[in-house]
Amino acid sequence: MNTKPDDETLALWLDDELEGDAFASVEAWAAGQPDQLEARQAVRDWRQMISSAVPKVEEPPYPEFFNSRITAAISELEKVPVKTVESRTSWWRTSWFMPAAAAAGMTLAFWMGTRTSMTVAPASVIEVSSSSPVVYTPETGVRADYFASRSADATVIVLDGVPAFSDALEFRETAAVPSDSEVESTAAKQEKPVSEVTQ
């Protein structure tokens, strides 16, 4: 063939990617094209220069550690069940049970909260409650949704309907679990009037 090849074929020939008949035919054409032969040599020289200076293979630092991290990441992936929530073998893992149980738990906690706030707790009760978790319950009209993900190892409670906090609001009386020292000092203060009564 002595006709000029199309641009794509020529580019492949310049980069030594042609083979077989296609290569032979372009080679025959290029025999009479010194500028093309020169261009191909320039591409070869260029590749030679780049490949001699920039390594094609470069072992990562700490190669064993590199591999062990990959293995660990894969093992971690394999451990996590793909669809824990959708498992049908355990009825208590069904999509409705967890939120319902959460809602029931929160209602119970709310009821207990209203009961305890009505009575004055003696000093001994305060000491016991210092190690108990503080339970917050939503107001009326607030919808609570509970999401638990085993794969993410996380639990999220979403409260819908809580009014936005004002920027000016300052939490000066934030509820917190008192430390042991605080409980002791509080108990001491509360015991004092009792001793005064007995005197």
Binding site: K56, V57, E58, E59, P60, N67, T71, I74, S75
Partner: peptide, 18 residues
């Protein structure tokens, strides 16, 4: 077979890292 994959990683990590 994770061991086979580890071998593939050894073979190709140099080119991928580069």
């Amino acid at each position: 077979d994770l061991r086979a994959y580890d071998e593939l990683v050894i073979r190709h990590r140099g080119r991928i890292f580069a």
